[in-house]
Amino acid sequence: MKVLVAVKRVIDYNVKVRVKPDQSDVDLANVKMALNPFCEIAVEEAVRLKEQGIADEVVVVSIGPKAVQEQLRTALALGADRAIHVEHDSMPDSLSVAKLLKGVVEKEQPQLVILGKQSIDSDNNQAGQMLGALTDMPQGTFASKVSLADGSVEVTREVDGGLQTVKLQLPAIVTTDLRLNEPRYAKLPDIMKAKRKPLETLSADDLGVTISSNIKLLKVEPPAERSAGVKVADVDELIDKLKNEAKVL
C-alpha cells in the first residue's frame, strides 16, 4: 500500500511572528522555518505504517518555492522513501493546494493520504477536507488514532465533545491531531541518506492546474495588546480585586 503525505513549510512554532510596519503581511525575513508540526506527525504516522509492514511506500509532497525542498529532505530523513516538489513561487491557498494534491493523487494512486489538520501560519484547517471533496474520498480529520484493516481504515477523531470514531473505505484521507503520535528526531546517518533519496520536481502545469485565488489579503495588523496587569500578594488580595475592582465575582 502506498501512503502519500502532504507537508508544508511554515514558521517554526516557537517563533512569535511580527507584523510588517506597512501592514502588508507578517515579516518572515530571517525567521526560522520548519516542517508544520501537524505535518511532522503525518510523516511519522506514515513511516510507522511502513515499519509495521502495512505500507510499502511513503511519498511526501510539498508545494511552494524551492525552499520547501528543505522540509522534503527533513521528511525523507524521518523515513519517507521519495519526495515530490510542486514548484510555485508563493504558497497557494488551501483550495489550490487541494487541486494540486488531487493531481498528485491521480498520478500516484495512494490508498491513504495523510495531511496535517492545520497549517500553523494560516490556521486554515481546510486542505485535507477540500482534497476529500475534490477526489470524492472519505475523510477522518483531527485523528488521534488510525487503524487499518483490509480495505478500510478506522479513525478516532478529536471532536469538541470528546472522541468520535469513523470507518472509511480506502482510498481515504486522514488529517492529524497532536496526540496521534510523537514524531522521532532524525538521526545524522538518516539525514545523510536522505540527500540521496529521489526528489522529483513538478509544476502546476504538469498537473493541469491553474493556481488562482479569489481571497485577497488586504491588511495584517498586530492583535490588540493586553496591558500587563498587577501582581497580587495572596489569595485574599486576589479575591478582593476580583470582587471590587474587576467585578467578576
Binding site: 511572528v17 507578517v26 490556521d123 479569489n214 481571497i215 485577497k216 489579503l217 491588511k219 495584517v220 495588523e221
Partner: peptide, 19 residues
Amino acid sequence: TFKRPIYAGNAIATVQSGD
C-alpha cells in the same frame, strides 16, 4: 470583507473574498 486571526492569533488578517 472579514477579519480573522492567523499565526496563533499573533496577527489579525483582513481578507476580502471575491467568490
